[in-house]
Design a protein around this nucleic acid. Structure first.
Lengths: 236, 236
DNA sequence: AAGTGGTCTAGACCACTCG
DNA sequence: GAGTGGTCTAGACCACTTA
């Protein structure tokens, strides 16, 4: 199987990232240093970095260096949240964790997170508010093994996004996600928390989030109240 | 305002595309020919093409050449349709045009398509079926000026996608779109055509589609029945 | 064999940041 | 001014397609 040099370099760099050699938010070695380290020309390293930058794994800053993308960076606090106010105005987004407990993996959760049915899983409930208004109710499932010690208090302490906490406290970096959307009728907790009548239409967003090596580490079921907000997507 | 050479080349090539110098589905000149034509090195042309290929405007095929992306290509018949069966199986997708008539632009349509309120607009109604099952009901608004002569018969004749007809018959190439999604209760025609009860949740997808030069040429309101299907999106 | 895009190199110079 | 990423070049060679 033929693989060009720059992809092999990329693979090596991905492993370095996965192994934590370069921490989120910090700069990686300069292109010329990497070229020497890997024994290739600078242009080849550059092409590897190009691809990783296109995938939002690295961020280039001219004159300063190349940095490992981080959910701690305010610029990417809610990087995966595609919900936007209809009028386009900026809102203050705040995450309100409601509960955090251990449950047994159901069929779906086990399949998605590559666990056995009944394996311990952490379930986090949380509410997302835009300017105080409750807009998203999330149920978040995490493999217990990798998030040992996660508590409601820990989540509440932080003013940052969830992924930011996962990154800082558990060394777990979320790099990619898949979302599946459908319209459903409101029921149960979502009704109360989002203050909408039973049966009223909600946008159900199911998300699988992956870390390095395409390993799924989070499954999320979010109910979005799309009265004054919409899910935005660009196609090309 | 500084702009690197390869972006200027890209701009020239975009104009050539917009002017119809290179038709969809055909190959553009080779990199070396373009390098001579624009008086730059091959590497610079290459970088311009790289960006355009990343935006799905061009398609490279090693050994053959670089081709202008086309909606006539079966590989991109429903390029912008993100609805997928829950079980992942392939379905036969068929577009069933229902009506095609002239209407006056409402506020929203005028704003989105950059027209005056009351300007003539073509409204197409159509149903999308997956393996015969009605799944999407679309209302499609097109600036009448640019789609003169569009008739229901013309749409019915074609076994291809709408954008394919637009491209072949009107020289209008859809290259990019923005979608805004929300959950709504079913009402009116959508109820009957999708065979769902009044008020049942539907995914409302509003799409603005652009041609070269970021010119909006289509506004679409689609009601998606997401009982056995979901809207799929990748985040990174 | 000829022509296309794809990779890789080495070197020059530009734009930006920071001390 | 020194160091970083960003651009541009020229040339060599590889991989793929077609005839």
């Amino acid at each position: 199987m033929f693989s060009p040099l720059y992809r092999q370099i990329k693979e090596l760099m991905m492993r370095a990232l996965g192994a934590g050699e370069w921490a989120p938010g910090t700069s990686i070695p300069s292109e010329s240093e990497l070229a020497i380290r890997f024994g290739v020309s600078q242009g080849t390293v550059r092409k590897a970095i190009d691809e990783m930058a296109a995938e939002n794994l690295l961020v280039r800053r001219q004159g300063k260096g190349t940095f490992v993308a981080s959910h701690n960076d305010p610029r990417s606090f809610y990087r995966f949240l595609r919900l936007t106010p209809d009028d386009g105005s900026a809102r203050q987004t705040r995450s309100e964790p409601l509960s955090c407990r251990m449950v047994a993996a159901t069929d779906t959760v086990a399949r998605v997170l590559q666990l056995q049915v009944g394996d311990p899983v952490i379930l986090v409930e949380r509410l997302l508010r835009f300017d105080g208004e409750p807009v998203v109710y999330d149920e978040i499932f995490l493999s217990a093994e990798q998030f040992q010690g996660l508590t409601l208090d820990l989540l509440k302490e932080s003013e940052r996004s969830l992924y930011s906490v996962f990154e800082s406290e558990f060394g777990m970096r979320m790099i990619r996600a898949e979302e599946r959307l459908r319209a459903v009728g409101a029921e149960g907790r979502a009704c109360e928390l989002l203050a909408v009548p039973e049966g009223s239409p909600l946008l159900l967003v199911e998300r699988v989030t992956y870390t390095y090596g395409d390993k799924p580490v989070e499954w999320r079921r979010g109910c979005y109240a799309t009265g004054n907000y919409h899910y935005f997507n660009e196609l090309s």
